[in-house]
Design a binder for these strands. Structure first.
Length: 201
DNA sequence: ACGGAGATCTTCT
DNA sequence: GAAGATCTCCGTT
Protein backbone atom coordinates (compact mmCIF):
# COMPACT_ATOMS: atom_id res chain seq x y z
CA UNK A 1 0.00 0.00 0.00
CA UNK A 2 1.51 3.39 -1.01
CA UNK A 3 2.21 6.07 1.55
CA UNK A 4 0.73 9.54 1.65
CA UNK A 5 3.16 12.06 0.17
CA UNK A 6 4.29 15.55 1.10
CA UNK A 7 1.78 16.93 -1.39
CA UNK A 8 -1.06 15.36 0.55
CA UNK A 9 -0.14 17.21 3.73
CA UNK A 10 0.68 20.49 1.96
CA UNK A 11 -2.89 21.73 1.78
CA UNK A 12 -5.21 23.79 3.96
CA UNK A 13 -5.30 22.17 7.41
CA UNK A 14 -9.09 21.72 7.53
CA UNK A 15 -9.05 19.97 4.16
CA UNK A 16 -6.30 17.60 5.28
CA UNK A 17 -8.16 16.80 8.52
CA UNK A 18 -11.18 15.77 6.44
CA UNK A 19 -9.09 13.78 3.98
CA UNK A 20 -7.21 11.85 6.66
CA UNK A 21 -10.38 9.90 7.44
CA UNK A 22 -10.10 6.34 6.12
CA UNK A 23 -6.30 6.46 5.90
CA UNK A 24 -4.11 3.96 7.72
CA UNK A 25 -1.78 5.01 10.52
CA UNK A 26 1.09 2.54 10.85
CA UNK A 27 3.70 2.11 13.55
CA UNK A 28 6.43 -0.21 12.36
CA UNK A 29 7.67 -1.13 15.83
CA UNK A 30 10.42 -3.52 16.79
CA UNK A 31 7.71 -5.98 17.79
CA UNK A 32 5.91 -5.70 14.43
CA UNK A 33 3.38 -3.64 12.52
CA UNK A 34 0.62 -1.98 14.52
CA UNK A 35 -1.94 -0.17 12.40
CA UNK A 36 -5.37 1.43 12.51
CA UNK A 37 -7.86 3.16 10.23
CA UNK A 38 -8.32 6.82 11.07
CA UNK A 39 -11.97 7.40 12.01
CA UNK A 40 -11.81 10.76 13.81
CA UNK A 41 -9.68 13.90 13.47
CA UNK A 42 -9.58 17.52 14.62
CA UNK A 43 -7.94 20.52 12.95
CA UNK A 44 -5.94 23.14 14.88
CA UNK A 45 -5.22 25.94 12.48
CA UNK A 46 -3.74 29.40 12.51
CA UNK A 47 -2.50 32.09 14.87
CA UNK A 48 -6.08 33.05 15.73
CA UNK A 49 -7.18 29.63 16.93
CA UNK A 50 -7.38 30.01 20.71
CA UNK A 51 -7.55 26.24 21.17
CA UNK A 52 -4.30 25.64 19.31
CA UNK A 53 -0.85 25.31 20.79
CA UNK A 54 0.21 27.68 18.04
CA UNK A 55 -2.02 30.49 19.29
CA UNK A 56 0.64 32.24 21.36
CA UNK A 57 3.32 31.89 18.73
CA UNK A 58 6.22 29.59 18.19
CA UNK A 59 7.89 27.99 21.20
CA UNK A 60 10.35 25.15 21.65
CA UNK A 61 7.47 22.73 22.24
CA UNK A 62 5.25 23.64 19.29
CA UNK A 63 7.90 24.61 16.73
CA UNK A 64 7.19 21.56 14.59
CA UNK A 65 3.65 22.90 13.99
CA UNK A 66 5.22 25.78 12.07
CA UNK A 67 7.54 23.53 10.09
CA UNK A 68 7.30 21.17 7.16
CA UNK A 69 3.95 19.47 6.47
CA UNK A 70 3.96 15.71 6.97
CA UNK A 71 5.88 15.78 10.24
CA UNK A 72 4.53 14.37 13.49
CA UNK A 73 3.81 16.61 16.47
CA UNK A 74 3.55 14.42 19.58
CA UNK A 75 3.11 16.05 22.96
CA UNK A 76 2.58 15.00 26.57
CA UNK A 77 -0.42 16.17 28.57
CA UNK A 78 -2.22 15.72 31.92
CA UNK A 79 0.87 14.04 33.30
CA UNK A 80 -0.09 10.79 31.59
CA UNK A 81 -0.90 10.88 27.91
CA UNK A 82 0.63 11.40 24.50
CA UNK A 83 -1.30 13.10 21.71
CA UNK A 84 -0.40 12.53 18.09
CA UNK A 85 -0.80 15.25 15.49
CA UNK A 86 0.24 15.60 11.88
CA UNK A 87 1.51 18.93 10.58
CA UNK A 88 -0.69 20.04 7.68
CA UNK A 89 -0.91 23.30 5.77
CA UNK A 90 0.44 24.77 2.54
CA UNK A 91 4.19 24.24 2.38
CA UNK A 92 6.48 27.21 2.88
CA UNK A 93 3.95 29.14 4.97
CA UNK A 94 5.01 30.15 8.48
CA UNK A 95 1.67 29.38 10.06
CA UNK A 96 0.75 26.79 12.71
CA UNK A 97 -1.36 23.95 11.41
CA UNK A 98 -1.82 20.41 12.66
CA UNK A 99 -4.40 17.64 12.78
CA UNK A 100 -5.02 15.70 15.99
CA UNK A 101 -5.68 12.00 15.44
CA UNK A 102 -8.58 11.35 17.83
CA UNK A 103 -9.58 7.77 17.07
CA UNK A 104 -8.66 4.68 15.08
CA UNK A 105 -10.25 1.39 14.15
CA UNK A 106 -7.77 -1.41 14.99
CA UNK A 107 -6.52 -3.18 11.85
CA UNK A 108 -3.15 -4.88 12.38
CA UNK A 109 -1.03 -5.95 15.33
CA UNK A 110 -4.14 -6.79 17.32
CA UNK A 111 -2.24 -8.95 19.79
CA UNK A 112 0.18 -6.11 20.52
CA UNK A 113 -2.70 -3.68 20.97
CA UNK A 114 -4.50 -6.08 23.27
CA UNK A 115 -1.36 -6.29 25.36
CA UNK A 116 -0.93 -2.51 25.42
CA UNK A 117 -4.58 -2.09 26.45
CA UNK A 118 -4.83 -5.15 28.64
CA UNK A 119 -8.11 -5.98 30.26
CA UNK A 120 -10.16 -3.72 28.03
CA UNK A 121 -12.55 -4.63 25.21
CA UNK A 122 -11.33 -3.97 21.66
CA UNK A 123 -13.85 -1.17 21.35
CA UNK A 124 -11.87 0.79 23.97
CA UNK A 125 -8.38 0.27 22.59
CA UNK A 126 -8.16 3.26 20.27
CA UNK A 127 -11.35 5.35 20.66
CA UNK A 128 -9.61 8.45 21.99
CA UNK A 129 -6.41 10.41 21.36
CA UNK A 130 -4.70 9.27 24.56
CA UNK A 131 -5.81 5.69 24.12
CA UNK A 132 -4.59 5.21 20.56
CA UNK A 133 -1.05 6.32 21.38
CA UNK A 134 -0.98 3.76 24.20
CA UNK A 135 -2.27 1.04 21.86
CA UNK A 136 0.29 1.87 19.15
CA UNK A 137 3.21 2.61 21.49
CA UNK A 138 3.54 6.19 20.28
CA UNK A 139 5.44 8.55 22.59
CA UNK A 140 8.21 11.15 22.80
CA UNK A 141 10.37 9.13 20.42
CA UNK A 142 7.92 9.97 17.67
CA UNK A 143 7.80 13.74 18.04
CA UNK A 144 9.10 15.72 15.11
CA UNK A 145 9.71 12.90 12.68
CA UNK A 146 9.08 13.03 8.96
CA UNK A 147 6.20 10.66 8.22
CA UNK A 148 7.05 10.67 4.50
CA UNK A 149 10.59 9.31 4.90
CA UNK A 150 10.91 5.78 3.48
CA UNK A 151 12.56 4.58 6.71
CA UNK A 152 10.24 6.36 9.15
CA UNK A 153 8.91 4.04 11.88
CA UNK A 154 5.64 5.95 11.76
CA UNK A 155 3.77 6.70 8.54
CA UNK A 156 0.42 6.80 6.79
CA UNK A 157 -0.82 4.63 3.94
CA UNK A 158 -3.47 5.73 1.46
CA UNK A 159 -6.04 3.31 2.86
CA UNK A 160 -9.57 3.85 1.64
CA UNK A 161 -10.78 7.46 1.20
CA UNK A 162 -14.23 8.11 2.67
CA UNK A 163 -17.08 9.70 0.64
CA UNK A 164 -18.76 12.87 1.94
CA UNK A 165 -21.93 10.89 2.58
CA UNK A 166 -20.11 8.98 5.33
CA UNK A 167 -18.47 11.98 7.00
CA UNK A 168 -19.88 13.86 9.97
CA UNK A 169 -18.64 17.27 11.05
CA UNK A 170 -18.94 19.11 14.36
CA UNK A 171 -17.23 21.26 16.97
CA UNK A 172 -14.03 20.13 18.62
CA UNK A 173 -14.03 18.30 21.95
CA UNK A 174 -12.43 18.88 25.31
CA UNK A 175 -11.44 22.51 24.84
CA UNK A 176 -10.92 24.47 28.04
CA UNK A 177 -13.14 27.27 29.26
CA UNK A 178 -10.49 29.77 28.27
CA UNK A 179 -11.35 29.16 24.63
CA UNK A 180 -14.01 31.61 23.40
CA UNK A 181 -16.19 31.97 20.33
CA UNK A 182 -15.89 31.43 17.47
CA UNK A 183 -13.12 28.92 18.14
CA UNK A 184 -15.21 26.95 20.61
CA UNK A 185 -17.81 26.07 18.01
CA UNK A 186 -15.66 25.97 14.89
CA UNK A 187 -16.72 22.80 12.96
CA UNK A 188 -13.23 21.36 12.82
CA UNK A 189 -13.88 17.84 14.07
CA UNK A 190 -14.42 15.13 11.48
CA UNK A 191 -15.49 11.54 11.99
CA UNK A 192 -16.78 8.56 10.06
CA UNK A 193 -20.53 8.10 10.54
CA UNK A 194 -21.57 4.95 12.36
CA UNK A 195 -18.03 3.96 13.28
CA UNK A 196 -17.85 1.94 16.49
CA UNK A 197 -14.48 3.49 17.24
CA UNK A 198 -15.00 7.26 17.46
CA UNK A 199 -14.22 8.78 20.85
CA UNK A 200 -17.08 8.69 23.32
CA UNK A 201 -17.50 12.25 24.51
C1' DA B 1 -25.68 4.74 32.41
C1' DC B 2 -23.91 8.88 34.09
C1' DG B 3 -21.22 12.29 36.66
C1' DG B 4 -17.46 13.91 39.33
C1' DA B 5 -12.88 13.93 40.82
C1' DG B 6 -8.02 12.41 40.96
C1' DA B 7 -3.82 11.23 38.59
C1' DT B 8 0.54 13.44 37.32
C1' DC B 9 3.96 16.51 34.93
C1' DT B 10 5.12 19.82 31.30
C1' DT B 11 4.55 24.34 29.71
C1' DC B 12 3.60 28.91 30.09
C1' DT B 13 2.05 32.89 33.23
C1' DG C 1 1.34 28.51 40.46
C1' DA C 2 -2.33 27.02 37.33
C1' DA C 3 -4.27 24.82 33.47
C1' DG C 4 -4.21 21.41 30.12
C1' DA C 5 -6.51 19.03 22.41
C1' DT C 6 -7.48 12.96 28.66
C1' DC C 7 -8.52 8.63 30.93
C1' DT C 8 -9.97 5.80 34.63
C1' DC C 9 -12.09 4.72 38.75
C1' DC C 10 -15.65 5.07 42.03
C1' DG C 11 -19.90 6.75 43.51
C1' DT C 12 -24.90 7.14 42.78
C1' DT C 13 -29.22 6.43 39.81
Amino acid sequence: MPRLSRIFYSRVTIEVARDLLGRTLVHQSSAGRIAGRIVETEAYSGFGDEASHGYRGKTERNAVMFGTPGFSYVYFIYGNYWMMNIVARPDGVDYPGAVLIRALEPLEGLELMASNRSGRPQRDWTNGPGKLTLALNIDAQHDGIDLTRPDSPLFLETGQPVPDSSVEIGPRIGLGRRVSEPWLSQPWRFWIANSDFVSGQ
